[in-house]
């Protein structure tokens, strides 16, 4: 890739208090327009890695770079301003939206934060985003989260992450709590969006099968380290790390091919 990575982690270490470190020297790059899968089991440090990448947690050692700029060298104001290029989709659909706000208010909030005062312009952007994620604005704008299904909530959360036309969206297992059919739906939606908008995604999941459908590149995270990365096809055909092999075997059995 010729252009600088949108988000880059160099030798990142992170521990909480005196406990064993959650991230031990993570190296990861997300290039413009690329969908990177972050695959690992529960407790591998996926969420921590995303928080670090979003600049929400300071690192103990190493660097986080946004388009080549070291986060620690940026002033808080610059950081807040740069965040217009970042979107974040949380894991739990029932926790993803503020309960006391309508869909319109929720999705337009990042625009407000970044000082776009013209409410007609905001609404227009919100409508475009809702349509992009497959929700009809006329039906959904005035609804509250409790009137939405889990899948609809995650779509609204995705629309909120996209409303600033960010360069990179960080998604923390957004499908893991959804109905199986909805998981595949949402992943397909993200594929379409990437093709249309050119947004890069860092997509955390524990399911290699889903990652294989969505991602250009997959990084396997185990014990706070990226133990292997590559194109999904490569990883599935000949996994080098035993852990990747185990994930691939589980995913294969889940799809119902080998039953032992």
């Amino acid at each position: 890739m010729s252009r600088r990575p949108v988000v880059e982690l160099q030798d990142v270490w992170k521990a909480f208090g005196q406990r064993a470190p959650v991230l031990c020297g993570v190296e990861l790059r997300v290039h413009p327009g690329e969908v990177v899968g972050l695959v690992g089991p529960n407790g591998a440090g996926k969420s921590t890695l995303l928080w670090v990448a979003a600049g929400l947690l300071p690192v103990d050692r190493g660097q986080v770079l946004w388009e080549g700029a070291d986060l620690r060298a940026m002033s808080p104001v610059d950081r807040a301003r740069w965040r217009r290029h970042l979107g974040y989709v949380p894991q739990d659909p029932f926790d993803a939206l503020p309960p006391h706000r309508t869909v319109l208010q929720t999705v337009e909030e990042p625009l407000r934060i970044h000082g776009i005062r013209d409410s007609a312009a905001r609404t227009e952007r919100v409508c475009a985003c809702l349509e992009a994620v497959g929700l009809s604005p006329t039906r959904f704008l005035a609804r509250y989260p409790h009137e939405l299904s889990g899948g609809e909530r995650q779509r609204v959360a995705l629309a909120r992450a996209l409303v600033l036309r960010p360069r990179c969206v960080l998604a923390d297992e957004p499908t893991s709590m959804l109905d199986f059919a909805l998981q595949v739906d949402l992943v397909d939606q993200i594929r379409t969006l990437r093709a249309r908008l050119g947004t890069s995604f860092l997509y955390a999941t524990h399911d290699l099968a889903l990652a294989a459908r969505l991602c250009d590149r997959v990084a396997v995270l185990s014990g706070g380290r990226v133990v292997e990365q590559g194109e999904p096809a490569e990883l599935l055909r000949e996994p080098h790390h035993p852990f990747t092999a185990a994930l691939a075997a589980s995913a294969r059995r889940r799809l119902g091919w080998t039953e032992t």
Binding site: L86, I113, A161
Partner: peptide
């Protein structure tokens, strides 16, 4: 967290 990531 989503709002903080977006710059709130």
């Amino acid at each position: 967290i989503a709002l903080r990531a977006a710059g709130a």
